[in-house]
Simulated scan of single mutants.
Amino acid sequence: MHKNKEQLLMHYENSIEWAKTLLQLTDTEWRTPIAKDKWTIAEIIGHFPAWDQFVLKKRIPYFFTHQELPKAPNENQLNDQSSKESKEMTKEEVIAAFVAERRRLVIAINNIEDELWDQQIQVGETSLTISDYFHGFIKHDLHHFKHVEALRTTLK
């Protein structure tokens, strides 16, 4: 297995297990903003499934065709919609959605042939490898996970 593919799959599997630990939070903790005028833990976790779905439906299927990638959604609109939905859902529903989409992503990534991980793809004006593309998602996850963990530490 390609080293970067293995690293990504491990990250996503670990993120699923980490998200499940959030079930231990009280509803008050779950709905606590990470800082003044920032998202709550619910909103942070709630925005991941929409982006995972985007990657599953509008990126991975197009990577190895010679078709142009579909346009990315407006980031603010997608995040605002995800935030709104996560406020209307229970903690269990938000975490279940996160876990379900991550599992679908794990399967899709696992199905990408190892030799394709170093192949160049075009995302807008940027040329990068599949490895580089997904590395950006790991960084995005870790950025948010760090904020959630910092809040969890202060809540103890």
Rank of each mutant, 00 (worst) to 15 (best):
I45N: 03
L9D: 07
F64Q: 08
T154G: 01
R31Y: 03
L128D: 02
F48W: 10
E149D: 15
E93G: 07
H47C: 05
I121C: 01
N14S: 12
H147F: 11
V123L: 07
S83A: 14
W18V: 03
V123P: 00
L8H: 09
T90K: 01
D37H: 11
A19Y: 04
Q67A: 13
W117S: 06
H66D: 15
T154M: 09
K20W: 03
T21S: 13
W51A: 03
H144N: 10
S15A: 14
Y133F: 15
L105Q: 07
T26R: 03
K84C: 03
K156T: 10
A72R: 10
D37N: 11
V123M: 01
H135C: 00
I138N: 11
W18E: 07
E93P: 03
D132I: 01
I107G: 06
N110Q: 13
M1Q: 13
K38I: 03
D132L: 05
S127W: 08
V148T: 14
S82C: 07
E17M: 04
K139V: 14
R103V: 07
E13Y: 06
D132G: 10
P33L: 08
F137C: 01
K71G: 06
A35L: 06
W39R: 05
K156D: 12
E93K: 11
T126G: 00
L69S: 05
W117E: 02
M10I: 14
I109L: 14
Y62N: 10
A97K: 07
K84N: 11
V94E: 06
A35V: 06
P33H: 11
R59S: 05
Q119G: 01
L22V: 10
